[in-house]
Design a protein around this nucleic acid. Structure first.
Lengths: 230, 230
DNA sequence: CTTCGAATCTGGTCAAGCCAGATTATTGCA
DNA sequence: TGCAATAATCTGGCTTGACCAGATTCGAAG
């Protein structure tokens, strides 16, 4: 959709065309290689530098940062349309479990009427989508993020948002199956009820079971964390 | 240190000089306002757009994205030297507790000899720093991140790295107190021993207590989550 | 083989300009 | 007066060319 092909192409090119010391081709060379002006290259490099993928040293050159790519980088790449390594998806699901189970617990203590209203709205929208035979990708994201929002921890919400940005291209596939969508929706309803009852233990358990579904799905798809087979 | 003043200045300027529809001044106006060329402005805008703070519509204008700032934005701002809202620090500490307690548990199952060796190296470096009367900011970060790394979940590690980037300017203050540094170091040792013994429950408990110290510190400093004073 | 200075390279920055669609102002008709 | 068609203007996207000054490199002198 909103792809920035130069950004990802450039990143790929830098990784494969850097010297032993991590120095990459010069801006001028890159510009020529990609058939664009230096300005375009500089703009992309500015982003890459902000992501800490690259370091620009004045009058010296551009160097790859040895640090592994940051979350920001992952998110930005995802937003630029760069596909995510399957193993990262699995890891992301594991993290989601950690985050969202805890979020469900905290939400039981901190959720306000506004949160509950939003959740009801989202569930109603889900119902409508299901009736229309459409996927629930957006509603699923909204539901889960609303629970995180109910923790009243904005950083928590921001962090979790990243997952959904990264999974933006894959969620629709997950929800393409009507039966899965229906089951997911019903689990959401039960989670909502637990939250409303402010039953922390139940909410955690339900959320855990709910996310287990996603985990098994991805595990089955990519062969687990240690045996990632195409 | 690595400040990009134009980036933060520009962001601030955009927020206060946008029309009702979120449209900001044009690139040419911004260039003139900041006394730089359009190229500089475009580079900064590219980053702001990558952070989803701004949207550039061809032949139309630059518009503020209504979405609240993303984690990437927070991290990038932090890296650019923009101070963090105190309330966000408190929220970050809460999140750290969620993450790192779980990380300690997982690390007990998954840590390899390499992780243990790194932890030992870090503890030794801490000892040296303490003897030299220096702060432990870097070693503290390394210790905690190594435990996260031991979970063998790279996304987990990336997410947690963001916290330390955001707290980069404040950690040195925390560790300026020798007594606090010493106590922190000793807690690290005990956590390491629990990890080595692969005692998940103990590791969790120790990590929880350890982070409680940081939480109280920040809570005392900013007056808690709901009563942020000054 | 080392040393030191000059030619070259590099990122940082600026200026001026063209393009074509979006936007806005203006004109002219009903 | 009201509105629609038209022209002038504005805007981001992108390119070319140039200058600076420190980093780097390379070759000549010792």
């Amino acid at each position: 959709m909103k792809e920035n092909s130069l950004l990802s192409d450039l990143a790929a090119h830098l990784f494969s065309n850097s010297s032993g010391n991590g120095r990459t081709p010069s801006e001028r060379e890159l510009a020529e290689h990609f058939g664009v002006s230096r300005g375009q290259i500089r703009e992309a490099l500015a982003i890459l530098e902000a992501m800490r993928i690259v370091e620009r040293r004045a009058k010296s050159g551009i160097y790859l940062t040895t640090t592994e790519a940051s979350v920001e980088a992952m998110a930005l790449f995802a937003r630029a349309g760069v596909p995510l390594d399957p193993i990262l998806i699995y890891e992301t699901v594991e993290l989601r479990k950690i985050h969202e189970i805890k979020a469900a617990e905290l939400a039981c203590d901190r959720a306000t009427e506004e949160n509950y209203q939003h959740l009801r709205d989202i569930l109603a929208a889900s119902e409508a989508k299901l009736a229309a035979g459409e996927g629930l990708a957006r509603e699923d994201r909204d539901f889960h993020l609303e629970i995180v929002r109910a923790t009243k921890n904005s950083v928590f919400h921001r962090v979790c948002s990243v997952y959904y940005v990264m999974g933006e291209h894959r969620l629709p596939i997950y929800f393409a199956d009507p039966a899965r969508s229906r089951r997911s929706h019903e689990e959401h309803i039960r989670i909502y009820e637990a939250l409303l009852a402010r039953d922390g233990n139940l909410a955690q358990a339900l959320m855990s079971a709910h996310l287990q579904g996603a985990e098994s799905y991805w595990k089955g798809l990519i062969g687990g964390p240690a045996t990632a087979a195409e």
